[in-house]
Write a protein that binds this DNA or RNA. Structure first.
Lengths: 121, 121
DNA sequence: CTGCATCCAATCTGATACTG
DNA sequence: CAGTATCAGATTGGATGCAG
C-alpha cells in the first residue's frame, strides 16, 4: 500500500473528529451528487443545462446546491455571460483538477468492480 | 492526468445513469459514514465498540447500517466469536484492501488541503 | 459486549411552480 | 436558459429499551 492511514493521521490527526475540516470537504466531494458533477466537469466546461442532462436523476435544487458548495470550496468555477438568453459555464479550477487526478483512479476501480459487487437494490 | 473520464466511460458507459451498479457502489463507499468506517478498518481489524468510539459522532444505528451494507458488498468481513460476553470483529476483505489502496491517496489529498478549503460550516 | 427495534425530531430530497 | 421558492415525503440522527 502506497499511502498509510498513519500518514493521514500525521497530516490531519482529526480525520475521525466530528466537524473537522477534512470531514467537511470529504462530505462535499464524496456526496452522492458531488462526485457525479465533478466527474461530468472532468471532461471540460459544462453549462447548467448540460450538467442537468448529463447527471441523470439530479434535481435542479440539488444541482444548484452542489454547484454552490463546490464553488465555495474553490473546486469549481462559475462564469456568467451577460447575454440573452443567459449563459453560465461551470469548470474545474486548478484545485479541482488536482482533486480529480486523485478521484478518477478510485472511480475507475469502482466502475470496473461494480457489476460484481452489487447485489442489493 | 493518468486516468481519463473517457476510459471510465469505456469501462462503464453508464456512470451517469441513475441506478447503475457503479453509482450504487459509489454511494456505499463514499457515503458520509462509509468512508470513515473503511478508513478505521484500514489500520486493521476492529471490534464493534472500537469502531463506535473511533468514528466520532456515528450512531449505533448508522454504524450497524453501514457495516451491513459494506459486508453485503463484500468489502468488509464480519467475524463473530461465540463467547460471553460476545465479541465481533470487522476487517477489510481482499476487495476492501484493494479499494482502500485507491481511496487513501484521495483522502490524504483532502486531509492536506482541507484546512485551506473550508470556509462554510 | 453487540447489536436490533421503535419513536420522534431534524435534515435532506425531489417535483412543481415561478422569476429574471 | 438559469436558477429560486415552496411544500410534502424520504432519510437520517438520537435516545431508549431490550435481547442474545
Amino acid at each position: 500500500m502506497m499511502v498509510s492511514l498513519a500518514e493521514i493521521r500525521e497530516t490531519s490527526g482529526e480525520v475521525f473528529t466530528d466537524g473537522c475540516p477534512t470531514r467537511v470537504v470529504l462530505d462535499h466531494i464524496m456526496s452522492k451528487w458531488g462526485v457525479l458533477v465533478l466527474l461530468a466537469l472532468t471532461d471540460g466546461t459544462r453549462r447548467w443545462g448540460e450538467l442537468r442532462r448529463e447527471v441523470d436523476g439530479i434535481s435542479e435544487k440539488m444541482l444548484a446546491s452542489t454547484l454552490r458548495t463546490l464553488e465555495a470550496d474553490g473546486i469549481v468555477s462559475r462564469t456568467s455571460y451577460p447575454e440573452v438568453p443567459p449563459r453560465v459555464e461551470y469548470a474545474l479550477t486548478e484545485l479541482g483538477r488536482e482533486l480529480m487526478e486523485h478521484m478518477l483512479p478510485l472511480v475507475q476501480w469502482v466502475a470496473v468492480r461494480a457489476d460484481g459487487i452489487v447485489r442489493e437494490g
